[in-house]
Nucleic acid binder design. Structure first.
Length: 480
RNA sequence: CGCGGGAUAGAGCAGUUGGCAGCUCGCCAGGCCCAUAACCUGGAGGUCGUCGGUUCGAGUCCGACUCCCGCAACCA
């Protein structure tokens, strides 16, 4: 490779009206796997995440907690930052949409769209529930009434906001969806294609400051603030320094964006249209992940069955959680979490599989005082087939499949050890000739596992690079 | 005719160019004893939702149907 390639990946920014939840943890862990894998491939990686902090809900929650919005944002944004250490993430940028540089970028982005003639002011009617003292969107209504106040008629209030000419970009968006692998999985690309093909309505991109002051000021109109969607999406480029430092932007853009399936429209349609309007290249690729259920039940704040990633890490460690989310659940499909499944998976694969194999081989090497000098070597004959299959799965982001391939190898090594039974042999050289190839395979597997379970990979790597490999502590003690 | 996803062994799932049905857990029977009561071998268990079509051959493609589940935009 003459010159290093650049690679940019970003998660969506979680909205800070609640604590970090397992769904976002799953999303950012997958992004982390991709980022780490790309680094292994020798690329310069820019890995972005952060928090989305504007908008009505944050404004209301701040008031409810008796905090200024700034205090509230600092407090809640800070709840997301420890994910980096707790989940062992490798992102190198944490952007907040309240950052001054981001706000300036939003305004510049707005101006560019405005200059294209894609932003206009329009009066329209919003539905207002007197009972709730709140505006309601159609999707919040049941049979045209507020579910909390079904007897009351909704009032219609005239409001004037800025709109974005989404409809103008229908054809260009449809052309974009012709490109294979723009959105993965393909079914999502089909879905958004059908949605866009069915017709687009312009959407409002501002709010009256009087009602909701917590947002980026609209350029040249003090009475309005930028609507949070429009604002938040711009982070994908403002985080690169756009429009100030074009050089960084030029190197890394366009991005691979990951999101949950609820974010398909904003990412794959609205944001792409916004980029077109501003004269910026579309995203490189959008990966759309599924949702998690808790024991088969939909997870929701109202159901009170949210899963706190921090407590899971506290209990089982970051690698165990990462492994579960990556191995048990198909990358793009919905998946389920339950403690029973977690423990079963942990014991079967991490304790009995990988952990036990490492213990067996290391112990035999130590007991027989066999000296080694190993380092990862993917050209090692015995690992080649595994590497080929592994890379194929990784290219499609099929992480569960990639891990399965590694675990087939682990199983093969356990079998090989049992068959050759070096503990029955007398001759040290013969014992060594059995164990050293196994140790070489293990250190190679650790290399492949680094994007998935980085702490364990480092442990194994350190352990197996020693001249005298020692048994040491169990990597994953069995859970009961 | 709103959009999309799913239906594969007792449970949970994988099967992306159509080619003898796989994985994990659980269950039964052996082996081993280096290891984290771990590991290895063998076995029982499936009309791949239903019906029809294409094909030498379909879980995999096409059509119809049944049953589940999301979404239905300006709520971030």
């Amino acid at each position: 490779m003459s010159e290093k390639e650049y690679f940019y990946i970003t998660t969506t920014l979680p909205y800070i009206n609640s604590e970090p939840h397992i769904g976002f943890a799953a999303e950012i862990i997958k992004a982390d796997v991709i980022a780490r894998y790309q680094r292994q491939q020798g690329k310069h990686v820019f890995f972005n995440t952060g928090t989305d902090e504007h908008g009505l809900k944050v404004y209301q929650k701040a008031q409810a907690e008796g905090l200024s919005v700034a205090e509230y944002c600092d407090k809640y944004s800070a709840k997301f930052k420890p994910l980096k250490e707790k989940l062992n993430l490798s992102y190198n940028k944490f952007i907040r949409t309240t950052d001054a540089s981001h706000q300036a970028a939003v305004q510049e982005f707005w101006r560019r769209c405005f200059n294209q003639g894609d932003i206009y002011k329009k009066k329209y009617e919003v539905k207002y529930c007197v009972g709730c003292e709140m505006e309601k969107t159609d999707s919040e209504l049941e049979n045209g009434f507020c579910p909390l106040h079904p007897g009351q008629k909704l009032e219609l209030i005239a409001e004037e906001n800025y709109f974005f000419r989404f409809s103008k970009y229908q054809k260009q968006l449809l052309a974009l969806y012709k490109q294979d692998n723009f959105i993965i999985p393909a079914s999502r690309q089909k879905e958004i294609n059908n949605f866009v093909a069915s017709g687009l309505k312009d959407f409002s991109i501002s709010r009256q400051r009087e009602k909701m002051p917590h947002g980026v000021p609209v350029p040249n109109d003090d009475s309005q603030v930028v609507y949070v969607w429009f604002d938040a999406l711009v982070n994908y480029i403002s985080t690169l320094g756009w429009p100030q430092t074009e050089s960084n932007f030029a190197k890394y853009w366009p991005a691979v964006q990951v999101c949950g399936k609820d974010n398909l429209r904003p990412q794959a349609a609205m944001w792409q249209a916004m980029l077109m309007s501003a004269g910026i290249k579309p995203s490189k690729q959008i990966l759309v992940f599924g949702f998690l259920t808790n024991n088969g039940q939909k997870i929701g704040k109202s159901l009170g069955n949210t899963i706190d990633p921090y407590s899971l890490v506290e209990k089982y460690g970051s690698d165990a959680l990462r492994y579960y989310l990556l191995a048990e659940i198909s990358t793009f499909a919905d998946g389920d979490y339950s403690e029973d499944k977690f423990i079963t998976r942990y014991n079967a694969d991490l304790a009995n599989g990988l952990g036990n194999l490492v213990a067996r081989v290391a112990n035999l090497l130590e007991k027989n005082e066999i000296k080694t000098k190993l380092k990862p070597d993917l050209t090692f004959t015995d690992i080649k087939k595994t590497v080929t299959l592994f890379e194929k799965s990784m290219a499609n982001y099929h992480f569960n499949e990639a891990l399965q391939i590694i675990w087939e190898k682990i199983s093969e090594l356990n079998e090989s050890l049992s068959t050759q039974a070096p503990w029955k042999l007398e001759d040290r050289a013969a014992i060594a000739s059995v164990l050293i190839p196994l140790a070489q395979d293990i250190i190679n597997l650790a290399y492949l596992l680094e994007p998935f379970i980085p702490l364990t990979a480092v442990k194994i790597n350190t352990q197996f690079q020693m001249n005298q490999i020692k048994k040491g502590e169990a990597l994953f003690p069995r859970l009961n």
